[in-house]
Nucleic acid binder design. Structure first.
Lengths: 343, 343
DNA sequence: AGGACCATTTGACACGTTCCAATCGGACCT
DNA sequence: AGGTCCGATTGGAACGTGTCAAATGGTCCT
């Protein structure tokens, strides 16, 4: 309705100068007790609220961190986001959460938007790997930290989880269970995580002295429940003796879709098929057959990323980029507990 | 690194005045083709990026919408958020997503922050119902739209789903299935949605001429999977002939927790216990036994809320608040398909 | 040739804040 | 009494943009 009150009106109402009001707000210690009280009273009476835009204009940078994720609906990212937020709010920063939806144009638009807002820095899981655009952003003064992605050139700080190791651990676990016919479900392979986890699985096979060809690859179009169901239908359609008995899924959504389809076809989990997922989302433990899954330290990932960002934005010229890698852990649950059945 | 380029430098580089550059950016039609080209070239050469803060300072309002939710990890809110984002981006607005985490202090802090940013408006699911703080916000010029919550005073626009109807529909469905011993799981009852859904269930019972006392209430501390498991353990501990055969859960997380616990105790769903959840999150359909659930039009909720907000922020004085209510729909799946067993 | 009109461009101000140098007024010292 | 010092306050200059009235220069008409 009525226009917001400015610091000037507060000053007039309290009978002091504008500078004094500003001081009350920013360095209360240097202004006399009585004036301070008077100003506070005026602020309350008029309902004054600071104008952030004006502050930032003066300060040069805003007090916002941009976080660009591939999918807000994915629990992985919401957990990361929470970690980021925790760390950011300690420093009085807000987080603006952007959903690139895995679409390059949307990502680009958000990057522009964030740069126009002169954000403190950007945390991003890039749709298509680190980019010239990101490097440009950096050069122009907006620090960028890669999330769950690494820069081959080392041009940015990054925080990631060792996905190759994760795939290795998952597959080793299935091999330990004595499974012979194995499958990996996930895709598209153009996504680094998907490829890395597969590579890890292959590494485990190689180490065990097994022919990589025993690993059946089922590439999906996406990493969601529906894709898992599709893959599950394909598996159910196979004659039992050709079905894999140990399946490693590129993420839990796929694993849940697969699990559901197995249940529907009365294929026992884990008796007939052992399943291992990835991400250890809440619903993994909550599934009818609790799902074994590779857990990533998600909140910690977010917190660390935010910390690296703050570090970089504070350090003047002499900042060296750091690449932090976390190690995933396998959480073994019922879905992979038994050995393979026999035919 | 180097300080950002300002419009002034662009002007100098292109050999025009500052005003002209601004015109190129905001009203390209009134500037001559040749000058326009020259300016664009300068912008590119210098890597100029608009300063949003300065723009908003001039404009008075920022081009951001604030969205405050109770829990970003809850799929309900992420879907709503996407709806909001869709609608906002049509108008070139960005969304800043805030997670109040069901904590009043955090909520308050975010409201302050958003007001300081002079956001276009705030969409909020208040922790403790609509508040004097919200009314104040409105009076000071920041439109507020309630999300999944209504203002008794009609002081705000609001968008909500008829939760009483949802509870009614769910319970009617169970009654249709011939269930005699019924239960409602959810809590705390201080949450409006939880209470409304229960009231709806009671309404259905009354309409069917049944004693409300046949509805066993299991109040939980929270609306998550863990609470559902707890409730499930309590139910499993009952002697079979005293167990409810039809259970309505205040949300899907609880239902999933319950489902898991039933599976673990080899209590058949739906043969022994029929389950109906609420929210129809993706995982409901993906559960081992696909879960019947009351679906709310989530994205539409978000879109509508955003639209109401824009409407209000454009309308000058003569805005009358509107309360939009959506009707939920029951999605019947396997978890409630059969009638009750017999003992 | 002189005037009128139009399309472009210009220059200056305003937005609300922070920061800094300058000023004020009192208290204390010599 | 004059000088000095210090805490408290003031005034004004930025920050980068959008807007608007005014200026500019060119074309066309009479």
């Amino acid at each position: 309705m009525n226009a917001p009150v400015s610091i000037r009106e507060v000053a007039a109402h309290a009978g002091v100068s504008v500078g004094t009001v500003s001081n009350v707000l920013n360095r209360p210690d240097i202004v006399a007790q009585s004036t301070r009280d008077r100003v506070h009273e005026a602020i309350k009476a008029l309902g004054f609220v600071r104008n952030e835009s004006a502050r930032q204009l003066r300060a040069g940078r805003s007090r916002i961190i941009g976080l660009v994720v591939l999918d807000v609906a994915n629990p992985f990212f919401t957990d990361v986001a929470r970690g980021v937020e925790d760390e950011a709010s300690r420093s009085g920063l807000a987080v603006i959460l952007c959903n690139s939806d895995d679409q390059l144009p949307k990502e680009t638009r958000y990057l522009e938007l964030l740069e126009e807002h002169r954000v403190q820095g950007i945390l991003i899981t890039p749709v298509a790997g680190p980019d010239e655009r990101l490097a440009l952003l950096q050069r122009r003064g907006t620090p960028v930290v890669l999330l769950d992605s690494t820069s081959p050139s080392g041009g940015q700080c990054s925080v990631a989880v060792d996905d190759v190791l994760g795939g290795d651990v998952a597959m080793s676990h299935l091999l330990d269970g004595g499974h012979q016919r194995l499958a990996y479900i996930g895709g598209p392979l153009s996504i680094r995580q998907v490829a890395d986890r597969r590579d890890g699985a292959l590494r485990a096979l190689a180490r065990a002295g097994r022919d990589p060809a025993v690993l059946q690859m089922i590439e999906t179009r996406a990493l969601n429940v529906y894709a898992g169901q599709q893959a599950g239908m394909a598996i159910a359609a196979l004659p039992p003796r050709r079905r894999p008995t140990g399946v490693f899924c590129a993420n839990d959504l796929i694993a849940l879709g697969l699990l559901q389809e197995m249940t529907r076809h009365r294929i026992g989990v884990p008796e007939d098929i052992a399943i291992v997922g990835y991400d250890d989302i809440d619903f993994a433990a909550a599934a009818a057959v609790p799902l074994s899954s590779v857990r990533q330290p998600r909140q910690q990932l977010g917190r660390t990323a935010a910390r690296l960002l703050l570090e970089e934005s504070l350090a003047a010229e002499d900042h060296t980029h750091r690449q932090v890698t976390f190690q995933p852990e396998l959480e073994i649950r019922q879905s992979s507990r038994a050995g393979p059945g026999t035919w």
